[in-house]
Design a protein around this nucleic acid. Structure first.
Lengths: 234, 234
DNA sequence: ATCTCTATCGAACGCTGTTCTATCGTACCT
DNA sequence: AGGTACGATAGAACAGCGTTCGATAGAGAT
């Protein structure tokens, strides 16, 4: 592991000169551009203009690379969340923070899969967890209820995000097939199901067709927050 | 794809004779015994006493294998859920179904990662989705609210389960390190954090230490169901 | 000038999912 | 019976992956 940051990158030489920063930045860029399957040590090395093995000086394994890359961008999210001014209602604050986190995962669907995997490496994730928990300190709850509340909220956020994070079947990644057509195709097969056996699916198929992910998430979050509000007796 | 099931497996011959059933059963067995990383085509072929390429006659890719294996066991869960007698309160029914599903994922943590990935292949998952939705038909809700409610519940169930499904760091898989010690080690590092900067983490660290996953899930589920009950105006 | 330590890299290893091609065995048709 | 089509099996090879090894370049200290 590197003990000192790289001071400067020497000019056009043979050997490449990296830094933790550049490694994580390029890793994130790869994840953003083409999803988790595109982040390979070879692809990353090529982007950095160096050899494969060099990356192992900064990172002990791919898992650690993913954890550090995740925490790297979570740092930005944390800053956004810390910039939120606390209001009168703690639950409204929780709501705002959750939406900010969700938005971030919406832009980078891969985040959900690695977020909070290992708080040893993911220091920013831990800080974010703390930040999410602080509003609950202003609620009339037991410590256990607070713990469960924040767990429930992160579950909803990350769970919703993971749903979205599933790599679409290539056709929509290419842009050949739009998201609406993708949903529509599912909806079409659902509509062909027997109406007797699948009354619920028929009831909601029009809602599913072309639905908005953010709205769906907001609905799930609000159910949880309503429950929490009731629990806090406010 | 096989059009006919295998009628009989001829006695001790050279060539192996499979069936969709046996392929999925052995795949599930591998997943159960040693997690997703243990399910490889080579390991599976060895268990089936045949060659690697044979599996591709039943399944077009590993993704499909995972989808079918998942749906295979979801079939059992579906039967359990269909055996539940509907009661007076639709939300109580929802609760019972969710707990049944969660229990199933608790026993097979890998389930959460593949559940509902592709309802084309996962027919039982679709039926389970329908079953989860039916109680909401008895609630005073709009179609959209019903859709969002069931999505929220599956998110909580699967989200909680995925959290648990993360392959533990080998030490606890070996049994060398118990789950309690594993949690305790995290708790210990959390306790060493600055109390000023991490008031919430300090507040809940004792709850985290040695916490029960099922209880944590139940708390998250109940928050959502309470919110839903309020929404339905009951 | 030599030594040490940081940082780099090419080549190789073992593993993976997947494909190619060849084949066996059975059921059916004449 | 003999021929043929096809369901079903399998070994070998391929490309790609994460990871390890051993060698080595460069900069600063002695």
């Amino acid at each position: 592991m590197p003990r000192h940051q790289n001071r400067a990158a020497a000019g056009g030489r043979r050997r490449a000169s990296h830094s933790m920063e550049s490694v994580l930045t390029e890793a994130v860029a790869l994840l953003d551009e083409a999803g988790p399957s595109a982040l390979t040590f070879r692809a990353l090395a090529q982007r950095l203009g160096g050899g494969v093995a060099s990356i192992y000086w900064y990172v002990a394994s791919k898992d650690e690379l993913l954890d550090r890359a995740t925490d790297h961008v979570i740092g930005g999210v944390l800053a956004e969340i810390e910039a939120i001014e606390p209001g009168d209602d703690p639950i409204d604050d929780l709501r705002a923070m959750s939406l900010t986190l969700f938005d971030a995962i919406l832009v980078r669907p891969w985040l959900g899969n690695y977020f909070m995997r290992n708080t040893d490496v993911q220091g920013n994730a831990l800080r974010l967890y703390e930040k999410l928990g602080q509003p609950t300190l202003r609620l009339k709850l037991t410590a256990r209820q607070r713990f469960h509340a924040v767990s429930a909220i992160t579950t909803v956020v990350v769970g919703s995000a993971v749903d979205l994070g599933q790599e679409p079947p290539q056709e929509v990644l290419d842009g050949a097939l739009g998201r609406d057509e993708f949903l529509g195709r599912f909806a079409a097969t659902w509509r062909e199901l027997d109406a007797q056996d699948f009354p619920f699916v028929h009831e909601i198929v029009d809602e599913f067709d072309g639905h908005d992910d953010i709205e769906q998430f907001r609905a799930a979050l609000d159910l949880t927050l309503t429950g929490l509000r009731l629990q806090a007796g406010a």
